[in-house]
Design a protein around this nucleic acid. Structure first.
Lengths: 329, 329
DNA sequence: TTCTTTTGTGGAATCGATACCACATTTTAG
DNA sequence: CTAAAATGTGGTATCGATTCCACAAAAGAA
């Protein structure tokens, strides 16, 4: 590997001059500059990032902590983040926690040892240990999807979107509405969406039978099973619509309903959140909410850049959304 | 940030001893070890990766060059790669070329400046400049999806899979078969799949009208347009089946056919390659080939690990596949 | 007992960059 | 015409680790 010393020697200047030329700060004469540029071109020299990082404490790398790397949401978000950061000369270091909260903490520390300039966290919980690890971090951390005390974040409009969907159900004449959600360790998806649902139901004074509320684990199968449990618990007394917390579970829900010969939406309508590609192609097409993940990714990335520019902020941005009305409601 | 010097001072030993203890090589007494471990635990010290990298030339990071970060294939592959490498203590540095061949080359050089230990390349072409950049690389490079001279790779079974699909068409009684492919800069998808198709057609002595061959650009829309062109060019003389090079284009193809009131597969059957999630949910469900991307990712990652262990190999692995017979044929 | 060998430790060089400082030379100002 | 400011360059310390070498003390062998 050619180093800055080789360049200095070949161009007949000191290492300092090469460095000044590279970073164009300080004075460098035209002749020197030309000689150096020529040598650099010839040798294909690129400065060693690790040496630069060691010296300057800047690596040009941003760490991203994802709950699961191979989901549509993750890849959209990453794409948005990458679009912004790559343009600003940053690379992404991806880590996948496989939904293991302990790993979130581990990675926060590991990424710091790697001297990332910042961390973008797609958290799935807000446990105390996590908050401590964040607090202790030497590099800026921004969050996407969950609101976390003292740090800047972009969050989705879980509350508003859920209520909008309910309003839309009502508009379509539904008064008996069921709910399929996820576990409550996940504040955004598990807690807020459910809260929004419950609040709205109470506000509208609608009945909600106990067996109209079910829970899954994000997977298509779990949506299938949840709906099955709901139907089998009391066939004579079913809701005319079901709000499902995620697209995938909604697709499972629809699978079961079709198998059990319920017509969608005539017998039971289904609405959810996610706007997965799939949602546009299932039969019937799924009414859902687009959280504009890619845009949201761009937005956290922008927040990250702002943090780099010294702006100490703990801004909490709520990202917009779009209700996509299709055939399932 | 606490450094190795702080640890040395607090534990009352020299920096060398701490280092030896950390890497457990050389002699360290039990007492010293205990004191050091205690101090490390208390301070939460982690060695600076950039200093280590600078000194040892090993970064624990593997670069991945992707044509496009937010595709289902990419995320499956990355997930497979990550599963293997993360377990072996490596992190992934992702780059997205946005299908720009110049960026592939740029990233190969950039990643080296970042001192990645190796590069996994999902190439979209095999142009001379790219091969030169690979040749010039100081770190091991392995490829996925394209066969590249002198380097180890995992490639998909494009040829065999295409011919298998044709055989299946025949089995179902189709003799008039059309083809929708992509541009030929892409050796794997553009050239080999087409070659396999043409070879088999010739071998079976089947007629192939000029207007039965069309081209798209991987997108759903381009599949729609390609099929439209085929149909409109000569409605009275259409194939009874179409092989489409990718799932997405096949889905576009089916969209057009349905709009134009052709029944699938009764009037025209459709088969493709990709096994996207979508393919299982469209109406009718799409007959396709599963290239087992995640497994393939694990496999290149393993190849990468072997390269780290000094095994100089240029093995060319062909990954297996599965024909998924569904309703569109 | 004396001579090797093993065990344990610290000093110093090194990796490849940056940045501060000192110094020389040129340019500009008063 | 001299003082001050601007320009250009090299020397050297430094970032935080690893690693080789020298050396001392303890253990084992002769």
């Amino acid at each position: 590997m050619t180093t800055i010393n080789d360049i200095a020697r070949l161009a007949n200047v000191s290492r300092s001059t090469v460095s000044r030329c590279l970073n164009n700060n300080g004075y460098v004469s035209e002749e020197a500059k030309e000689r150096i540029d020529k040598v650099i071109k010839e040798t294909g020299y690129m400065p060693s990032q690790s040496a630069q990082t060691l010296r300057t404490k800047k690596s040009g790398v941003v760490g991203v902590i994802l709950p699961k790397i191979s989901t549509e949401t993750a890849s959209r978000v990453v794409s948005g983040i990458n679009a912004v950061l790559q343009n600003n000369g940053f690379q992404l270091l991806l880590t996948d926690t496989s939904l293991d909260p302990a790993k979130e903490i581990e990675f926060i520390r590991l990424l710091q040892a790697k001297h990332v300039d910042g961390i973008i966290l797609l958290a799935t919980n807000t446990e105390k240990e996590l908050l401590q690890a964040i607090e202790a971090s030497k590099v800026p951390i921004v969050a996407l999807g969950q609101e976390i005390p003292n740090i800047a974040s972009v969050t989705y409009s879980d509350y508003a979107a859920t209520q909008d969907m309910l309003a839309y159900f009502l508009e379509k004449g539904h008064k008996h509405i069921g709910y399929i959600g996820v576990y409550e360790e996940d504040p955004a998806v598990g807690v807020i969406r459910k809260q929004a649902f419950m609040d709205k139901m109470k506000q509208l004074d609608l009945v909600l039978k106990d067996n109209w509320v079910e829970q899954g684990d994000f997977s298509i199968e779990s949506g299938y099973e949840a709906m099955k449990r709901m139907v089998e618990s009391d066939k004579s007394n079913l809701p005319t619509a079901v709000f499902v917390a995620t697209d995938n579970m909604a697709i499972g829900t629809m699978q079961y309903l079709k198998e059990a010969s319920y017509r969608i939406p005539a017998d039971i309508a289904v609405g959810s959140i996610g706007a997965s590609t799939l949602s546009a192609f299932v039969e019937p097409t799924l009414t859902t909410v687009d959280f504009l993940n890619e845009e949201a990714g761009e937005r956290v990335a922008t927040l990250m850049l702002q943090a780099f520019n010294g702006k100490k902020n703990t801004e909490k941005l709520r990202h917009s959304y779009r209700l996509i009305k299709r055939d399932s409601v």
